[in-house]
Amino acid sequence: MSFINYSSREINCKIVYYGPGLCGKTTNLQYIYNKTNPEAKGKMISLATETERTLFFDFLPLSLGEIRGFRTRFHLYTVPGQVFYDASRKLILKGVDGVVFVGDSQMERMEANIESLDNLRTNLAEQGYDLDKLPYVVQYNKRDLPNATPLPELQEVLNPTKVPEYEAVATKGNGVFDTLKAVAKLVLTELRKGS
């Protein structure tokens, strides 16, 4: 749910990075955090376990600049990817304006990708959202690994609705900002439609 503040002239939107455990959601946010000017970002918060697995969420507030005199602020969240944190994932989807599904390109993670994508659809539906109607992009991460599934196969399984999609190597930053820009654009376009 976007929050439009006519008083302070701000638009606030929430984007959630979803995907299976260890697919690179947190890495996406860390890269964005590291490459963004200090004045455009707030503190990045990671609620993680001692072994750096996301326990509840990561949070990164970003300011993208002005649009017609309104400051656009995006709050980026990740969900915990591990299967048993489903209750937490549902909570984080509340009030979402845009979704990034981060798929893990590794062949042995294909099943985990499919499970996570199904889970995304189900959890969104529980909150009253339809994935097909939300601003939504897909990222195929870890494209640099030798055991990466060929792109056409990933596209067929993880992006049947043909939403904008990006290949990425989040550790090096490849595709990270392309993904963010794409979802941010869709969110703003949706805002225009909804107004």
Binding site: K43, I45, F56, P61, H75, S88, L91, K94
Partner: peptide, 30 residues
Amino acid sequence: KNGQAMASAGEVETLDVTSLSSLTAGNVAA
């Protein structure tokens, strides 16, 4: 409830209001 700060009063200059808002909303959601 989604973690956006709306208004404040008092000694907020030293607070990271954005982070506090997000974490509080997460806490309330949990």
